[in-house]
Amino acid sequence: MDLNKLMNLPGALAAFTFTDKGDLKDHAVRDGSEIAREVLDLLAHWCVANIAIATMEARGWEALTGQKGFEPLQGFSMIGLEWSVVLASGCGVIMKNRDVNYEDAFNAVAACAAAQQMQGAA
C-alpha cells in the first residue's frame, strides 16, 4: 500500500522500504526502468547512512549555532544526473528529475515512514 502511493508520484521509477539496518524489505519497480533489487538494497543502506549523517549534522548545527528548525529531520535526497532518490526513515522513492516534485516526494516518504513505524510498533 505504501509503495503504491510512492509509485503514484509523477516520475516515480521505483519505491522501496527498508529496515533500520538498511536491509531491503519491499520494493516496486516501474516496468522498463531496469532497476535491480541489488542496487535498491545498496541504496537502502545509503539511506540509513545518510539519514544518520544528516541527523548528526542537524543536531550539531543546532547546538553550535543556536539556529533551530532542522530537527526532527524529515528526509534526505540524493540528486543524480537523470534521477533523484527521496527518502525518509524506512522509505525511499526514485524519481525522474524532469518530473520530480521534491515537496510532494518528501511528504509522501514521510507519510510512508510514519506508517512503517506504526506497523513496527503494532
Partner: peptide, 14 residues
C-alpha cells in the same frame, strides 16, 4: 543515470 551526482537536499522540520 545517477553519476555524476548533482547535489543533495536535507529536509529539516522547518
Amino acid at each position: 543515470g545517477y553519476k555524476p551526482a548533482q547535489g543533495w537536499i536535507v529536509r529539516g522540520a522547518q
